[in-house]
Simulated assay, not measured.
Amino acid sequence: MNRYILKTITAGATLLFSVFSAAAQDTIRVADSISNKTTIWQRLKQDAFYMGGGVIHVYTGPLRWKKDDLATIGGFAAGSAILFASDRETSSFMRRQKEDMPETLNDIGWSMGSPGYNYAITGSVYLFGVITDNEKFRKTGVLLFSSAVTSGVMQTAIKNIAGRSRPDKERGPFHFSPFSSDAGDHSFPSGHAMLSFTTAYAIGKQFKNPWVKAGIYTVGLITPASRVWNGAHWLSDVGVGMGLSVLVVESIDKYLKAKETYTPDDKKKVSWNLTFGNESIGIIGSF
């Protein structure tokens, strides 16, 4: 089963990465002289700085909240309350569907929300950007890493403080044991849902085509849905987790845009295209 999961995720990561390369039709910066180029080490240092800055930007966000932000938070809280109120019924319905769900979806759902597999995809996107000095890929990688770290710390803290019981413990949706060390009391919010949807939402933001966006977001929804029908989380756990993911990604994306650091050089372009061969797949740059 582990070999099957690894092949599934490897293939998925390769396809996602290749589609991203072909669809984005982005360019890498080609300097006019060697002196204008940055080294890989310089890029790594710069990107690490902005990754840390993105994380700090999110956690200091409340200090910058304005009227519109408060309205957004209010709407988010109201929506979360509705999900909480429907948890018992939605969980019961979703869990009854489990036997009809393909095992493949369960495997993909678990893997996409697992840090190891998820960071493999994130790392592939980022390393490609660093090695080729591709601003678009570098920015996406920075956005992915900083969003994942922010979401990870956030969900871990909330889980431990809330101590909400998981559906499969059969204690009901309103059983809380704050600061419990029992994994069965770490239901809210869903870490798998947050990580998978953070990645999907951050990548989806790089495309203008609504159909491409929809496809990527649909993949990101597999993990949240599977966590509910497997009884690992309530609907509100994954709903709130996904909502927090969107807020985190949007906040860090706004931070990176304000810095105006990742701007492609249009003086000379290299177009990256997806190619297929005999039992092979690759990317070719055209000057």
Score class of each variant (00 low, 15 high):
R3P: 03
I5W: 01
T10E: 05
G12M: 10
F20M: 11
A24H: 09
D26E: 12
T38N: 04
I40L: 14
P62F: 15
L63R: 08
K67W: 14
A77S: 12
A78E: 10
S86A: 13
D87C: 07
D87V: 12
T90Y: 04
D100P: 00
E103L: 09
G109A: 12
W110Q: 07
W110Y: 10
G116D: 10
A120Q: 04
I121Y: 05
V125E: 02
F128Y: 15
I131K: 02
I131W: 11
T132I: 08
K139G: 09
L144R: 07
L144A: 09
A148I: 08
T150M: 04
Q155V: 15
T156A: 08
A157E: 03
I158Q: 00
I158R: 01
G163T: 14
R164K: 12
R171V: 07
G172P: 07
H175T: 13
S180M: 08
D182N: 13
H186E: 14
M194W: 05
F197H: 03
A200T: 10
A202E: 03
G204F: 01
K208Y: 00
P210G: 07
I222A: 04
S226Q: 15
N230H: 09
H233N: 14
D237S: 06
V248H: 06
V249W: 01
A258W: 04
K259R: 14
T263K: 15
P264Q: 14
D265R: 09
S271Q: 08
S271M: 06
N273Y: 14
N273I: 14
T275K: 11
G285S: 02
